[in-house]
Design a protein around this nucleic acid. Sequence first.
DNA 1: AACAATTGAGAATTTTTCTTCACAGAGAAA
DNA 2: TTTCTCTGTGAAGAAAAATTCTCAATTGTT
Lengths: 213, 213
Amino acid sequence: MIKVLVVDDDQDLRDNLVEVLGDNGFSPSSAENGEAALEKLQADKFDLVLLDSVMPGMDGMETLPLIKRNHPKTRIIMLTAFSTVNSAVEAMRSGADDYITKPFKIDELLVAVRRCLEEAKFGICEELLNSDDMFKCLANATRRKVLMLLYQENKLRFMDMTRQLKIDDHTKVNFHLKILKEAHLIEQDGRKNYQLSPQGKKIVTCMSSIAAD
Amino acid sequence: MIKVLVVDDDQDLRDNLVEVLGDNGFSPSSAENGEAALEKLQADKFDLVLLDSVMPGMDGMETLPLIKRNHPKTRIIMLTAFSTVNSAVEAMRSGADDYITKPFKIDELLVAVRRCLEEAKFGICEELLNSDDMFKCLANATRRKVLMLLYQENKLRFMDMTRQLKIDDHTKVNFHLKILKEAHLIEQDGRKNYQLSPQGKKIVTCMSSIAAD
DNA sequence: AACAATTGAGAATTTTTCTTCACAGAGAAA
DNA sequence: TTTCTCTGTGAAGAAAAATTCTCAATTGTT
């Protein structure tokens, strides 16, 4: 379910948008200013934010960079009054994915929303294609075993690892460790202990959700 | 953070357990009966449920199979009065991972909790190792491109796909499609349209979260 | 029939993986 | 100190696997 956050101080507009978005298969929430929006974004993960540029309290132009910084994958569409189109351009520069001038027709908005999300879809795929090393790495059962060992044990030294893996030729283990290191899935601390890198950890947990049920 | 849900009608016990679990690095919530528990499980994802077998309203024995069905990866430890040990055995059969007889020492519980989660960790790894075909599949850039295309376009026929991929040798595409089919990441409908399998979809979305930020 | 779409089989090629050899440091034992 | 064993790392060729390419067959459309 695609989650959209509507941020606008006008309650009528907010309610209206939430209803329309709901009818169109999205899962909408709303907030009436920047602070509230940031809180909601903290608590939950949204795919898209519709952000009014002018609001009492923290306004959209202020909020925009904060959202982008903490939630880089979240898409943002600015809602700007016609008179402030110039600032819309500025908004695009600081990370908005699109903008719409008020007043707008609801269809206009939906089109922008859908286009925006389509582009995001494409972005995902780009990333998917560029992480070749990682996937090559994961293709080998021995290497996956290493990852899982490190996931369970946190830290291990070279020889302990080869013993646990029950591989008698230690140079073979070394071969795979080198590949894992080059793909940045594991790292070594000062005392030569091997451990999962942050990236590596992400992968292990992510994998588990794939293999599930 | 490991999330644990305590389900018991005794408020004192509930509060006590929540406190202890919190002190021991878990992230606990509580519910006072089966219905409430199911709601919480719906809203949020828990790693482990401590489930009292005897409660007013929907009791633990009733709740157990419902939890297991909708959240198969969530581990469950039953809390049973000594007098109902027999039903504990039954509980194990319907999917509980362990049980503890009341009254219990808090350490006893923590041991069971930790063991249970350790086993879960191991389970993840098992799955990771057994899905070899899938990883082999993902190791190839062309095949990942196919997945992403199908993710974007939903359905595609053979020749349209080869054109979009800009691969002039169609037999090459065919080769990879066969492999994807064998790994059950894509499927074909009656009109020979290729599309992502449920498994395939899961992978694409999961991958995107790895590549993130 | 004519033509495009779709699939398969196997040889040729490229990548990965395995194996063997070589080397260096650390600490224990003689 | 010297010798020995265990640890940790690198590199190159052989073996195995994956990928590409070539030829061919089958199916569906116009």
